[in-house]
Design a protein around this nucleic acid. Structure first.
Lengths: 227, 227
DNA sequence: CGCTGGTATTTGGTATGCCAATACTCTGCG
DNA sequence: CGCAGAGTATTGGCATACCAAATACCAGCG
């Protein structure tokens, strides 16, 4: 018997990738909206803190700028971006568009097993009151939307959405606590599951879109804490 | 009287940006699908050709990799990516999702003047046969879709779509020549304009989506020249 | 005391050099 | 003639050095 298992590869992730991940997690975990004034990232300071030279730092910052996490003002520095309410709303709208398309595609592409396990994957939606466990519900909420997107089997849509999600994640949780969103949100989720099970593409698309746009309207109305 | 007018600023674009634009136009203008074998970009060769050092070249390549134009195999080189048919189809589907959302938003947000000038902006759609001037029609075609996207007044959607368009542009023209797409395409465009003028969000969204998905199906079926 | 002009310092952009890993080549042995 | 292996060349990743722009600071003048 062969007990000789090898790991697929060990590319020994480059310093650039490590710097990218370190900076990205630092940015997404910080409370950018909780403080005033611009947050500037000093290349030399970062390279000294992380123990690498400026080159991989700069390359990592270039990627983060592409993804919209930082903004580079020539000859002035690179700053963590603070999204305006309008931008957040736009992201949610784009997300709603992509996710509703994923739902449409899922109705044609998803396997019966995948659709069937939607109910078992999210027991939180079918039992108890969400107000009690907002933290777990918020987790399930994100998993739910990611599941829909993955059922569409469209790589491009998945990639675009995962990036949008990174930016919007922080706002979602806040929005849940405001108003009466949690309970109405669950009802809509259940409707979406039913539409998918019925493979009703038009209905699933519409429900997902309206669900997303509902969040957009909510943020637009109650998102005073932004900007 | 003050006759002393000054220009706002002259940021004097950085070498990195110049290298990025040079490489991007070179990549998008080359016929990547017309030749076999991988196309490799040599950092040192490029820096010599463009007359700059490797640093800005590398940063430009990093951005292009993020945008999906090149792929970097560590220790092997950076290659121009050849999209598979499946990826192209996915991009068109994502695009259809975003553009249809833009159309929906346009029905609520666009000004009467903007909607009114749609007919005058695209005289090609209303006169003559498209088969005669495919080149000009193809130009008008792209302008038409960009116009719809801009009417949605959603920056995020515009940015995402402009990137998708860069990748799909080459395929569009080929698709127009195959089958009977040009003339049916025009009829659909006119319907879209009418829906926008009526500010019928549901209809406009549906028409734009189906128009885009039609192209996706067409590419999926006839895109033998890909991959 | 405030403003102006110049200088010093900081900082991002670019160039260059080094290193390790990979690819290539050429030779020698079977 | 073919294949293996060593040695060489190439190439990408990273570090460092240098430069020019922008800012901060300071002195001198009003």
């Amino acid at each position: 018997m062969q007990t000789f298992t090898i790991k697929p590869i060990v590319p020994a992730t480059s310093l650039r990738t490590l710097a990218y991940e370190a900076l990205k997690s630092a940015i997404t975990n910080m409370d950018i909206y909780g403080q005033t004034g611009d947050v500037r990232l000093d290349e030399r300071g970062l390279s000294q803190t992380l123990g690498v030279s400026r080159t991989p730092i700069r390359e990592a910052l270039t990627v983060l700028e592409q993804e919209g996490f930082v903004r580079n003002e020539p000859r002035r520095g690179v700053f963590v971006v603070r999204k305006t309410r309008k931008e957040i709303v736009g992201m949610i709208q784009a997300w709603a568009a992509l996710e509703s398309m994923a739902a449409r595609l899922a109705c044609a592409r998803a396997s019966d097993e995948d659709l069937k396990c939607m109910r078992t994957m999210f027991p939180e939606f079918f039992e108890g009151t969400p107000a009690d466990h907002l933290a777990e519900y918020s987790e399930a909420n994100i998993r739910f939307h990611q599941k829909i997107i993955s059922l569409g089997h469209c790589e491009v849509i998945q990639d675009l959405c995962s990036n949008l999600l990174m930016h919007v994640k922080g706002v979602r949780n806040i929005a849940l606590r405001e108003g009466d969103r949690a309970s109405t949100s669950i009802a809509e989720h259940i409707q979406i599951i039913e539409a998918l099970e019925a493979r009703d593409a038009d209905l699933a698309e519409r429900l997902v879109r309206d669900h997303g746009l509902g969040l957009a309207i909510h943020v637009e109305r109650y998102g005073k804490h932004l900007e």
